[in-house]
């Protein structure tokens, strides 16, 4: 208990704290998961009982549901820190804000997206995706959800000081999600139809690396603007 406090970097400090906060409640990981399950159920009921038709649309359904679930959970990414004042402390710390922001988004991704990826085989079974494509689906969701997290965090940072941010964040972020859903969904469709799918997979990887580097910059600026009002 009395171990000395090591001088860890802000990235690790924030990652550790956020994971600890998330671990004290289950809403952070459970709610997106339940949302995705409900969304898939509703989609399937809407599409009708035709199994083949459901399977044909499975890729789109899974990606839309994951995308919406991620977006809705991102609304709270900075909200609590904004309300309780930790965000001020975060931006006033001596180190660069870049890594602090990165730590926060990464922690949120670990808690909200990884359970979705782990549950994706279940989604696939519900919708009748052939078993052999499940690893590919999970891998593309892993990459794609990273893009969704970092891009969505920009929207969350811009709207954190606003009272009703839920719909606004959707309006800001969903247009930016277009490439992710295009590459993600057609990747699975291509695989199921037996077409090559390397190109969209590489595009997703490329987008992820670009977003990891650039998004924390934009998020840092956005948080400063939000605190400034």
């Amino acid at each position: 208990m009395n171990a000395p406090v090591k001088a860890r970097g802000p990235l690790l400090a924030i990652l550790q704290r956020d994971l600890r906060v998330y671990s004290r409640g289950r809403s952070a990981w459970l709610n997106p998961l339940l949302f995705a399950l409900l969304g898939i159920t509703l989609f399937t009921l809407g599409l009708g009982p035709d199994r083949e038709r459901v399977a044909a649309d499975a890729a789109a359904v899974i990606w839309v549901v994951v995308l919406l679930g991620m977006m809705m959970s991102l609304d709270g990414l900075f909200k609590e820190d904004y309300v309780d004042g930790s965000l001020e402390q975060l931006l006033l710390m001596a180190g660069p804000v870049y890594f602090a922001v990165f730590g926060k988004v990464f922690a949120h991704w670990l808690v909200s997206a990884v359970p979705l990826v782990l549950a994706s085989p279940l989604f696939a079974l519900m919708l009748g995706v052939p078993l052999e494509h499940i690893p590919l689906l999970a891998f593309s969701l892993l990459i794609g959800s990273g893009i969704l997290s970092f891009l969505g965090a920009v929207g969350a940072a811009v709207t954190v000081s606003l009272q009703s941010s839920g719909l606004l964040i959707a309006l800001l972020i969903l247009p930016l999600y277009v490439p992710v859903i295009i590459y993600g969904a057609s990747l699975l469709q291509a695989a199921v139809e037996g077409w090559p799918y390397l190109a969209p997979l590489l595009m997703l990887c490329g987008l992820l690396s670009a977003v990891i580097v650039l998004a924390p910059l934009a998020i840092g600026v956005a948080l400063k603007i939000s605190l400034d009002s």
């Binding site: 802000p10 400090a13 704290r17 609590e80 309780d84 004042g85 402390q89 180190g95």
Partner: peptide, 21 residues
């Protein structure tokens, strides 16, 4: 707003603040 996380203990809160310095 002082930046105290409600889910964490006073010890954890203070240590987190320290690690930001």
């Amino acid at each position: 707003c002082v930046g105290i996380k409600a889910a964490l203990t006073p010890r954890e809160n203070l240590q987190w603040w320290l690690s930001l310095q």
